[in-house]
Design a protein around this nucleic acid. Structure first.
Lengths: 195, 195
DNA sequence: ATAGTTTTACTATCGATGATAGGTAATACT
DNA sequence: AGTATTACCTATCATCGATAGTAAAACTAT
């Protein structure tokens, strides 16, 4: 019998491969923060991980595939960030904290925000596999909103627009700061006010 | 005496030059809509106006200078668009129409919206001369908002974020449509509600 | 009209970019 | 130990934005 049947995909080759990909992605984010998302050079990136440029094609079949991996990576970071936070308590408070946390997450890394919520790379469309992570996030967001009484499509649209607008202003005009994050409570109360 | 002293900078050379620049910009917008803002090829652009690539440098000293001209051109379009519209009437109605018109303007051309309100080109910063047009727009926006009672910085920030978020959602999820533009009234009433 | 000046546009070429071909060294499985 | 697969390399390609140098064209002034 096979004594390692209970292992979870741990053959040494794919372990090493995954670790290498993670390293490349980490350096890619660094380069993106330094030069801009659309200005990553594959030669620079390869050099940063001790490779020559064509060797990157062992791990990514094209530059757009690298962007897709960054897209998925960013959403995994966002979901992990939300996982370690607590959205219990009154629905209103939970929604305020959720909103504030999202703006803060965006503010922490403008380039990551760009990748997740804007679409600045010509020709890049996330694969369905990566986009599923984005959908998972939108599901969580609409759940928190629904708990606070936001059910109608128009209200959901407005909620999404407000969060998006606050995050964008925060990243664009006060990166790393709190000016728009501090508007979370006011924004949520505005959204929840009876009409 | 000089019988043409009352002319307003109409020497035939700069006339021709301005017309040529306008033609190049128009083709640049077309290419940007086709290939993406960051994917404009100077060879394609030159070909579209009957020139070879290096000849574009007669009119723009770099690709970033071309982007700067597009930035200024887009804001001139926006200001002209607002000029031909009427924002008299009650302050609330004016603000609703202003908001709806902005979202519609964004929706009409997603690439132009990107250029004016996002910053997707690595290395591009508008010149002070071009940025003055953006400031002119923000002045008009805050005036309409102020007339409706939006004075505090936090309220202005929130107003700007909401407009920006609505426009972005409209461009990203329903380009050319009205789904978020139709939320203008609801959004403005929300912003104007007493707290 | 003609001489002189400025503007416009060209060809040729540069370094850098993303991508591919083909070969070799390293690694893992039988 | 032998074999197959993966990882990585060098060399090279077309395309990109940019510059140098030159010729033609357009305008001005005499």
């Amino acid at each position: 019998m096979n004594e390692s049947a209970n292992r979870v995909a741990t053959d040494p080759r794919s372990d090493r491969r995954e670790a290498k990909i993670a390293g490349i992605l980490s350096e890619a984010w660094d380069l993106a923060r330094r030069d801009g998302l659309g200005a990553i050079s594959l030669r620079d990136l390869a050099g940063a991980v001790g490779l020559r440029q064509p060797s990157l094609y062992v791990y990514f079949e094209s530059k757009l595939a690298l962007y897709d991996a960054m897209f998925a990576d960013g959403y995994r970071q966002l979901l992990a960030y939300l996982d370690e936070r607590d959205y219990t308590g009154t629905p209103r408070d939970a929604l305020i904290r959720f909103t504030r946390d999202l703006i803060t997450f965006a503010s922490e890394d403008g380039v990551r925000y760009q990748m997740l919520f804007q679409r600045p790379i010509p020709g890049f469309e996330p694969t369905t596999e990566s986009f599923a992570l984005a959908l998972e996030f939108y599901e969580r967001a609409t759940t928190v909103a629904a708990n606070a009484g936001i059910h109608h499509q128009a209200d959901i649209d407005l909620f999404a627009a407000v969060i998006n607008g606050l995050s964008h202003q925060q990243v664009a005009n006060d990166p790393g700061g709190r000016r728009w994050a501090d508007l979370a409570e006011q924004a949520v109360d505005m959204l929840l006010a009876p009409r």
